[in-house]
Every structure is written in C-alpha cells, then in structure tokens.
Design a protein around this nucleic acid. Structure first.
Length: 411
DNA sequence: TGTCCACTGGAAGGGAGGGCTT
DNA sequence: AAGCCCTCCCTTCCAGTGGACA
C-alpha cells in the first residue's frame, strides 16, 4: 500500500470480525430471542392465510425497541418461505412514519401490485377515491390473501385521521377473489381511542402487547449478535451486561442496546484498541444521546430554529423560563434582524408544541391568575451544543454573538 | 364570588405547489 | 389551458380557562 492519507486509519487488527450491520436494529436474525411466544401467537392467527382464508386483523402494541418490527419482518420472511409450497399469500410491510398520508398509503400499497412502470399510480394528482378503486382492482386480480403490516400506525392516524384504515378494513366487502388482512403496529396503547368505532373493532380482532425486555433478555440479544459481529475476546466480559443494564433502564429498548454496543466498538476501534471496555460504553451512551439532539436540531425547519434560538438567547441572559408572549417578542426581533418572515403567534405556539414533543424544549401551561394563562417554556437540551448546531444554519449564523434588545417581563 | 388577564387550542379556510385529466 | 385533486404551511377567528385579586 502506498503512503496515503488513509494509511494511519488502516487497521491491522479490528474488533469487528465481519459484517457490522448485524448490530443494526434493521438486521433480522434467524432466531429472535425472547419473542417466541409472540411469534407463535402471530403464526397461529396467520396460518389461515396459508389455507386461503382471511386471517383476523391484528394490532400489536409495545414501546420502541421491544421487537415489534423485527418480529413482523421475521413473520414476513417466514410467510414468503412457506408460500412456495402452499397457497398464495402476499405479505407487505409499510412504515407509516415515512408514508404518512391517506393518499400515500393507498398509492404505495397499490403500486406494489403494479408491475408495469407506466401504469403506476402517480404520487399526486389522482383523487383518493380513484387510487382506492385502482388498488382494490389490482388486489382482486391477484386472487391471493394479502397481509398488510402498517408499522407506526398511530403516526398515520394522528396526522391524517382514520379514513385509510376504514377503507382497508372494509375492502373485503368489495373484493370477490382476494382477501385482505391488516396488521397494525403502534407504540401508543391509547391510539385506538381516536378511531372510528367500526375501524376500532375491525382492526382489533386480535391484540398483542410486546413487553419491554429486561436486562437479562437484552443480554441474550446482545450476545447473539456479538457472536456474529466480533472477534473472540474483543469484548471485555462486562461490556454486554453494561449495555444491557443501561438500555433496560430506558424501558428495555433493544434498539438502544444494540446501538450502544456498536458505537462503543466503533469508539474502541477508532482508538486502535483491540478490545472494547466499559468506558467505551459510557462514551458511546453520551455520544448517542448528543447525536440524537444535534440531529433533531439540524433537521428543524428555519422557523422552528428561529424559535429555538429565541428560547436559547433568553435563557443565556439568565432569565430562566419564559412565556409565550415573551418568546414571541424575542422571536419577532430575531426575524427582523435576519429579514425572515414573521409568523403569527398562533402558528408559533404550534411550533413550540412541536419542539416540546421533540424534547428540545419543555413547555407547560401555567396560570398566573390575573397575569393570565400561558405556556412556560424552557430549554431541555445542553445550550452550548444547541447553539453551535443552530449557528451552522445559513440564516441563523448571522445571529452569532447577537445581544437581545427585548427585555422580558419575567425578572 | 365574580372579574379579568394572556393566552390556549380547535375549526375553518386560503393559497401555493405538486401533478393528473380532458 | 382549464379544471380538478391532495398535502403542507399558515392565517383568522374565537370560545374557553386557571387562578390571583378586588
């Protein structure tokens, strides 16, 4: 190898032995530890599909990282395997966080049955009714049992209502040759409260809850993957238990545990170490947490960044919590300064609520008696880091070292 | 006990931007 | 080109409200 800039980074020895993607949450192993019960239960419902009958619709609940998605994809793989010697079943999976409109869902499902590129449903332009009719026609032509898994279905409902689900639940009335069953996957146990009663009862013919993993179970999951990913003795004995324990504290999130293991190994590798230690795990945990925050801020739209900057600058002056009115004044000042369009206060309150949901600020409604009722807003991420990221923005970069003119009423 | 503040948050709707159909 | 449809971002309007204070 020539002397190149990469020379110093080329490792003679690595902690990884093969494909490190086995540590990614998206990897579906051949065996899913501690989910046998759920898999069997699902299989017992879905087996009717292989007999040409329509299986019951199913709702799966469970917090993030409890293996819902992995389980459903695993089931999907098994269905594909089984259908080679049994009746025709078609399994399809869709994440409603990515496709989150009525039209989008119907269009995506429809296009999975249209081979000819020219006949595909365009991503906009048609009426929803027309997309639905096309979808129904194409599904009927297949003469199969179709199992549709909708992941993060609560996101779809909260954004676009339950019309699509209504359509999908009663599509069987309009089908002559094919049958459709829907598997809904949700993080939120309560989301069915917002559904039309007919949709609710139809969708929850069967319900299953995925409990969080405990530390011991997480340890098994990590060990299974570690065997595939790492060289022997690349991990100190305490590394896996530590990752498992830390993730178990956060409602048993397996995704977190895997990320932590992967990132700590990457940290060790970058430092040219041949084994991963506990301190790498701690570093990894901090890095992951910070990365989440900076990524969330970086991808914020301009107006939201502007609002966040308003919160930040006010807090920087040591004024602590601020009200909607104060924030709006500050925000207006920043907009003028950067010649950005000023939105209405109504809109700003919505954006503040969004920031709250992202966990970037903490906002709660508080009454000051005669002083009125308003939101009390404070930053809930490290301000130095937040500021650094916001200032990367072209427009907000102008506000570097900016001193506020506006005096808040909270003193 | 009633008043009143400074909002909150729902509803409705406008209009821009994407694209199809006739 | 005109007439549609759907989504996104936003404005306008407004009834509702928790609690300090008179």
């Amino acid at each position: 190898m020539q002397d190149t800039i990469f020379q110093q980074y080329i490792r003679t020895k690595s902690v990884f032995k093969g494909d490190r993607d086995v540590l990614r949450p998206s990897y579906i192993p051949d065996v899913l530890p501690h989910r046998e019960e759920q898999i069997n239960q699902l299989a017992s419902v879905l087996v009717s599909a292989l007999e040409g009958q329509r299986p019951s619709n199913i709702l799966l609940f469970g917090k993030t990282g409890t293996g819902k998605t992995a389980t459903i994809k695993y089931i999907g793989k098994e269905i594909e395997r089984a259908r080679s010697d049994l009746r025709d079943v078609h399994f399809l999976y869709m994440n409603c966080e990515i496709v989150d409109t009525q039209y989008g869902v119907l269009q995506n499902i429809g296009n999975m049955f249209i081979e000819d590129f020219d006949q595909r449903i365009p991503f906009t332009g048609w009426s929803t009714e027309r997309v639905y009719n096309m979808l129904r026609e194409k599904i009927d032509e297949t003469r199969r049992v179709i199992v549709i898994a909708l992941d993060e279905i609560d996101k779809l409902v909260s954004k676009s209502g339950d019309d699509v689900l209504y359509h999908l639940c009663r599509i069987n009335d309009d089908l002559k040759n094919a049958k459709v069953s829907v598997i809904g996957i949700s993080n939120d146990l309560k989301f069915t409260e917002f559904l039309d009663p007919r949709v609710k009862s139809s969708l929850s013919e069967e319900k299953m809850v995925f409990p969080p993993y405990n530390a011991e179970q997480l340890r098994d999951i990590l060990s299974q993957r570690a065997k595939l990913a790492f060289e022997d003795n690349a991990l100190e004995a305490s590394v896996i238990p530590l990752c498992a324990a830390l993730a178990a504290q956060e409602h048993g999130d397996a995704r977190r545990a895997l990320d932590m293991l992967r990132v700590s190994a990457e940290i060790a590798e970058r430092n040219h170490m041949t084994s991963v230690t506990d301190s790498d795990v701690v570093k990894a945990k901090n890095k992951i947490e910070l990365d989440c925050v900076t990524e969330a801020i970086r991808t914020l739209p301009l107006q939201s960044k502007m609002i966040l900057m308003g919160v930040l600058l006010t807090e920087e002056r040591g004024l602590g919590k601020l009200t909607t009115g104060d924030l709006y004044e500050t925000y207006k000042e920043l907009c003028e300064c950067t010649t950005t369009t000023v939105l209405t206060q109504r809109r700003v309150t919505d954006l503040v609520s969004e920031l709250d949901m992202l966990g970037l600020v903490h906002a709660r409604v508080k009454s000051f008696g005669r002083g009125g009722r308003t939101k009390e807003i404070e930053l809930s991420v490290p301000s130095m880091e937040a500021k650094r990221v916001i200032e990367e923005d072209e427009v907000l970069g102008q506000l570097k070292n900016y001193k506020l003119r506006f005096q808040t009423t909270l003193m």
